[in-house]
């Protein structure tokens, strides 16, 4: 039995201004992965490659243990997707759009779909162009959840969603993975409450993988470090990422807090970081380098 819902290996894609370079990570079934990185890091490119919307220049992608190009149709039966922008037909109503999509899926359930419409407060007869951005995302999510998918892929799903619904999504996604056979991958460039339920975090920057690990181990190994500027000798600098110096001191992030603690003896503040801290300092570090 295949344990990985998604496996990306040495994935490559080159554009004039941007290269996705040998990206590798995997996602086991039963878990939720947050795919983070600044705008333009390559998150959407990666998702488009998984969905085979663009052609890869190298590497492999397998979904449910199947090749994402060779077994494309079979895989897509089992994927629910939510994109950051609306690509449904503006001219149609929710029900009409559903009528177009539903016949493509073997596992489509009108009952589920109607339940989600009700839960999400989506009026079935409303035209897509009359929906707010948040409602469009909700509609997209309702479609993704109504065909018995095993893998939900969401590209920047939280943009345009209010905090109340974001919290609802946490419940929906957590319920989705209750049976241990399904998985969720969502990308985001701002860290939100969605990360609360993420089991794994894959962080890319400039088309390169920074890390792909359990969220717990990342938050345990990374730390926010603050102190006076006089402490910043070469040895300390080497252990830090994205150092920000101001007139009164410095702030930075270390990726190995244990090592940093054992090597560094002095007056320094070591704090638990947020994912946003880690992302911010790492991106800054790569820009300065």
């Amino acid at each position: 039995m295949e344990n990985n819902i998604l496996e990306v290996k040495d994935l490559k894609k080159s554009y004039k201004e941007f290269t996705l370079n040998n990206l590798s990570f995997k996602l086991e079934k039963g878990y939720i992965m947050g795919f983070i990185g600044p705008n333009g890091a390559g998150k959407s490119t990666t998702i488009k490659l998984i969905m085979n919307l663009i052609n890869r220049d190298g590497g492999e992608i397998s979904v449910f243990g199947l090749d994402n190009i060779k077994d494309e149709r079979c895989i897509k039966q089992r994927i629910g997707f939510v994109y950051d922008e609306n690509h449904f037909y503006d001219e149609l109503s929710i029900t009409e759009m559903k009528g177009i999509i539903a016949p493509f899926y073997k596992g489509w359930s009108d009952k589920d779909f109607e339940r989600y419409l009700k839960d999400f407060d989506l009026p079935p007869r409303k035209k897509i162009k009359e929906l707010s951005k948040g409602m469009k995302t909700k509609f997209s999510l309702a479609v993704a959840l109504s065909h018995d998918a095993d893998f939900i892929i969401m590209d920047e799903p939280t943009s345009g969603l209010d905090p109340v619904f974001r919290s609802e999504i946490l419940d929906i996604l957590a319920s989705f993975i209750q049976d241990e056979k399904k998985a969720v991958l969502f990308s985001t460039h701002i860290t939100t409450d969605l990360e609360k339920i993420a089991d794994y975090i894959t962080f890319i920057n400039n088309g390169e993988l920074v890390f792909s690990e359990t969220k717990d181990s990342i938050l345990e190994n990374y730390a926010l470090v603050k102190g006076g500027k006089e402490l910043l000798d070469d040895g300390v600098r080497r252990e830090l990422v994205g150092i920000r110096e101001n007139n009164y001191g410095f702030e930075a992030v270390t990726s190995d807090v244990k090592k940093f603690r054992s090597q560094f003896k002095g007056d320094i503040i070591i704090e638990k970081p947020t994912l946003e801290d880690i992302m911010l300092y790492t991106v800054r570090g790569s820009k300065n380098a």
């Binding site: 939720i32 946490l170 419940d171 319920s175 993975i177 339920i197 993420a198 089991d199 717990d216």
Partner: peptide, 8 residues
């Protein structure tokens, strides 16, 4: 799910 935290 209840606590909105990760399974791991």
């Amino acid at each position: 799910r209840e606590l909105h935290i990760s399974v791991i």
